[in-house]
Structures are given as structure tokens and as C-alpha cells.
Design a protein around this nucleic acid. Structure first.
Lengths: 322, 322
DNA sequence: ATCCACTTTTGTCCAGGACAAATCTGCCAG
DNA sequence: CTGGCAGATTTGTCCTGGACAAAAGTGGAT
């Protein structure tokens, strides 16, 4: 095969359009249309007439790409010089602390602050130890609801404000995953009800939400089967039927588009037998505008016990079955 | 970041050109030029005049894409019907049973068979118990190298042959992840060397490879920091520098396109200081044709001890770094 | 304040042409 | 036969410039 990578020559660190796409995540089409519309980037041309991006422009594009991820718009950014752009990271709002529904109970705030501090100092071993200690003190369920949930948001905000790096956020997720999975492993198995199948739809990659839901459900006596992330709708239907599942639980982070989420949710609802419930959870639904018939929204972890109780009430204690 | 991509309508299983690019790894430009030159694929058009690929064509493209990775040429493949294409896989792959490195030692085959059986019967609790028992008997390292590695391949093959469903493969991954992470949690921490940063590049979502590498490295006395999956190259460079990393370890599954993988590897190598080594691992390199200067390929888990020994030999026993 | 209609912004798609790198082919010398 | 080389063919990527719908912003009426 033509392994024509188009990689910029090793010395002159000048990038081709393919390199820029790979590095910034901005598609070639978009790069060309930006150039046409905003006059930036303005790459040089090589002997063939192909675009050649100097390192400074690549760097600026990287910064712009990250600002776009935070909801800013290209038209306003393209003209600004690099230092100005970098300032935009700081300018992000701290987000009203009370309004988010973030539980700020007891003396947990210092524990969260310590976690953030350890993260910033790249001490992943101490971070894990810290989590383990807090877990021991609070118990698995309180640890999950009162610490992990709020901490996730805190880490997300710190990243958005440029206070921690992408890699540090990755490390946080990884260590927390260890702790939570260890906790799930310690839950005694047993035939309980209802049986809940947990997963996310294609495009949603965040695992922590699933693990947290798993813990809260198991703590209330549900039977959890997790499929991990990104199960195509067809396979969810197939698996739920085959395994005699009562509830399909889906997790949605803010990364997903609202409209795409609705579409997939409605599609799944249409294909799943009516007696199988769908519970949709996650921060995406925090200010959910539109209800979907046959889908229960569980925005917060604390609503899980209520949802289970409601289900058990309506379905009675009888072993349902047609 | 990827929230700027276009989705095909979820229920009509028909794909847009962007979907096909994502699923097959063939770029939009290439798809259009194939259509022009070879008459395949021949997508329909929607009301806007945009291409709409029916599922059969997508499927055929997936097969073609894999054959291209094995060195065949598009001009000869496009006209062939699907069954004919599938035959080309057999014709090409003699795969000497010993050369694959699949350890088939001792009495492990029955254990793997039992695992597959439990998976087929959807008994995820028994599956986890089974793993836990085998782990106890073999020890973490042998469990990883001799059972998990071969079992991964077995599960992949079973899926490819339609013997297990997508959801069952997900359940396998999820349960195995629990077991492996539990194992990693039991490894005593300590300042050891070299320090290895583990992750995958964007587009590679498979976690098991990382976890397995983590175990094998830690077992040989390396210090492992895992970033989880999909870290952009720039962030890898940033984090490796900041944390004083000696080796960046990357995992590549067969899902990634060979060409894209080479491009990203070469790019990362160019941006990373020369004193930081890059080790590339995973099944993708099983028949690696082309070496990359400054990158060590570690196709099999069993090669990890050797790689570490080589590194320690060349870098001496002196505690380099402050 | 909340909702709806209207305007602007923005990303993706399309067509068809061009070109160089990779690969194949046939030929000739050893 | 084997190996190397020049020329022909194959193939992926890049180009331009136009089009359009989804998303985001705006303003007025309730």
C-alpha cells in the first residue's frame, strides 16, 4: 500500500494539512474554510501548491481548538493573537457553587481539595491512597455519591479553566476507575431484582458514570450487568431480551450532543419491548427540557433509590412475567 | 472534541460518508475517488444529494479495508463479490500455529474453553469467579500472559465467526477489566525504574492491552503511570516531560488502521525528546513490515522482560536523573 | 422570565481536476 | 534463472469554490 504519510520533513517542522488535522482534530475541510472565511490560518505553499503550516500557526490552532471545545466560537477567536487567546482560559466562569446541586456536605470539601492538590502535583500513588482512605471512612455508597460525583465536576471545571492538564484528568479517571472497580468487586453477588443492564450508546466514552451507577444500584439491591461503553442500540435490544433484563440503564455525559442523544434514546425506546424500562442518567439531563415517553430520567445518583422504589411499588412483589 | 462530527440517522441503518470513514478508516476523498474510478461503492443519494451508503456496501468496504492492510490492491478487489473477498483471508493467512506466540501451555486450554462456555451462557458471575480462581492458581503474571492474551484472541475470533454477540464480548471485556484492575491494585507501589507512561493514541479505545502491559511491566519492577486510552500526542509529550518519564508505552489493537498508526507514531517520535524511548505494542504489529527509527516494537507481552533488560543494560545501573 | 420566529455563524458535503509516490511490468545483463 | 532498472500504471491526497442545513445568537411578544 501507499504508505504515503505526508509527514513533514524531519528538520523543517512545517506541517502539511493532514498533520494539522491529526494534531488539532480540525478537519481538512474546516481548515480550508477557515482560511477562506477568516483569513486564518494562512499557510505557505510548497512547490506543488500544497499548504504548509508553520509551527506558530499550528500552535495557535491547537489553542483555538481547545477553546472551541469549551464552547467559544471560531469567528471571535481567529483574529486574536496567541497571548490574548491564552487569557481566555482563565476568563472562564467558576460556575455558581450552590446552583449545580453539588452536595457540599460535612467536611468533604477539604478531602476534595486535597485530591485536586495531589492531582496537580502528579502524585498518582498518593492520590490512590487518599481515595482508599476516604473510601474506608465513608463506605462505598457515600464515597460514590458524596465525593466522586462532586469531585468529577470539580476536575472537569479545573480542566476547563486550564488549571490541570489533559493528562492529569486522564490520570484522575484512571485512578478513580481502579478504586471504584475494586469497590464493585467487593459487592457480594446474588440473585436480586430488578436486573439492570448498564451501558452507554455509541459516541459516549465516559466510564465513571457507569461505575457510579453500578455501585448505587447494587447498594439498593439491584442486579447489575455492565456492558461497558458504546454498545450499539441493536445489540442492547438483543442482549436485554436474551438475558431477561428488567431495566436498561444508560449514562450520558455532557460531551454528547443533546439532539443526537434524544434521537438515539427514542430509537432505542421504539425497538425495546415496552415491559423493559429505560432509565437515562447523567449530567447531560441536568436541565432536561423535553421528556421522552417510556424513558425515566435519573439526573442525580441520589434519585436512584427513589426510582427503584417506584419500580418495585408499581410492579409489586410478584415475579412478573407474561 | 469530537462533538463536531456528523451522525447518520440512528435507525435507518444507512451511513453517511462521515460514518463510513469512521467505521472503515477510508478517507472521504478516497471513498469518492473509488466510486469515480471503480464504480464501487455506489451509494444512493438523500434529498440533499449527499451520499447514503447501504449496510451491505459498508460491510464490503470493511472487508476491503482489512484486505488492503494486508497488502492487496483496491483495483483487484472492488469488483469482487463479498464471498470471494472473504476467501482471500484464508488464502493469505497460513499463520503457523507456533509462530503466533499464542502460548498453549499446560492445561490452560480447558480453562479458556470453560470461559468461552460461561460467556455463551451469559453467566457473568460465574465467569468472574472462574477468572478469580484461575488467577489465584496461576499468579497475576502468568494469568495475564498465558491466559488473558490468548483468550482475548479467542473471544475476538468467536465474535468474528458470529459465535458470540457483541454484548457478550462487551461483558467479557468488562469482567476481565475488573479482574485485571483488581490485580493491579494489589501490586505494591514503590519508586522503581524505569518509569513508563502507558496510554493509547486517539482512535484506539481498547483498554485491556494497556492493563496487561501495566501488569507485565510492574511485575518486572518498572514504575507504571497509565493515562487510560486516547491521549492526544501533544498531551503525551507534555506529560512525559513534566513527569520525567523514561519510556512512553503505546498499545495498538487490530482495530486501528496501520497507516494512521505509523503516521501518529512517527509524529510522536519527532516531538518527543530523544532520551525518552517509545515502545509500541499490540497485535497490530504482528506482521509489522516497516520499522520506525527510535521506536521499539514489542509485539508480545513475553517480550517485555527482554525490552526492560535491554534498556537497563544500555542505560547502566546508575540512577539516572535527579 | 419563557417562548417563538428570524438572522448569522459554522461545519460538512460535492464535483472533477491534478500530481507524485508506490507499485507493477518488461527488458537486459550477469 | 536472478537481479536491477527504466517506463507505464495504479492509487491516495490535495486543490478550488460553491452550496446548504444544523446550531447558535437575537429580539420581540406573552
Amino acid at each position: 500500500m501507499m504508505s504515503r504519510t505526508k509527514w513533514s520533513s524531519p528538520e523543517s517542522r512545517e506541517a502539511t494539512i493532514a498533520t494539522v488535522e491529526r494534531e488539532t482534530g480540525v478537519s481538512k475541510d474546516t481548515l480550508r474554510v477557515w482560511e477562506r472565511r477568516y483569513g486564518f490560518p494562512r499557510p505557505g505553499r510548497d512547490s506543488r501548491g500544497e499548504r504548509v503550516y508553520p509551527p506558530e500557526q499550528l500552535e495557535k490552532l491547537r489553542v483555538i481548538s481547545r477553546l472551541l471545545d469549551r464552547g467559544m466560537r471560531p469567528g471571535r477567536l481567529m483574529g486574536l493573537p496567541l497571548p490574548e487567546l491564552l487569557q481566555r482560559f482563565q476568563a472562564q466562569e467558576p460556575a455558581p457553587p450552590a446552583a449545580t446541586g453539588r452536595a457540599a456536605p460535612d467536611g468533604l470539601t477539604p478531602m476534595m481539595d486535597e485530591a485536586i492538590g495531589l492531582l496537580k502535583s502528579d502524585d498518582e500513588v498518593a492520590l490512590r491512597t487518599h481515595f482508599a482512605r476516604v473510601l474506608l471512612r465513608l463506605g462505598l455508597q457515600r464515597f460514590t455519591v458524596e465525593l466522586v460525583g462532586p469531585l468529577n465536576e470539580l476536575v472537569g471545571e479545573a480542566w476547563a479553566r486550564g488549571q490541570i492538564a489533559v493528562s492529569q484528568e486522564h490520570i484522575y479517571t484512571e485512578q478513580m476507575q481502579h478504586v471504584l472497580r475494586q469497590g464493585i468487586g467487593s459487592i457480594p453477588p446474588g440473585a436480586q431484582s430488578p436486573s439492570v443492564m448498564l451501558t452507554t450508546l455509541p459516541g459516549e466514552q465516559h466510564q465513571l458514570g457507569l461505575l457510579m451507577a453500578n455501585i448505587c444500584l447494587a447498594a439498593e439491591g439491584a442486579r447489575c450487568i455492565s456492558l461497558g461503553v458504546q454498545t450499539p442500540a441493536w445489540d442492547i435490544v438483543h442482549a436485554a431480551r436474551r438475558q431477561g433484563i428488567d431495566v436498561v440503564g444508560l449514562s450520558f455525559s455532557e460531551a454528547l450532543r443533546l439532539k443526537a442523544a434524544y434521537a438515539m434514546l427514542e430509537d432505542l425506546r421504539a425497538r425495546l419491548p415496552a415491559e423493559i424500562e429505560i432509565w437515562a442518567g447523567g449530567k447531560l439531563w441536568a436541565r432536561a427540557p423535553r421528556p421522552v415517553p417510556g424513558v425515566r430520567f435519573v439526573t442525580l445518583l441520589t434519585q436512584i433509590p427513589g426510582a427503584l422504589a417506584a419500580r418495585r411499588g408499581s410492579h409489586g412483589r410478584r415475579t412478573e412475567k407474561s
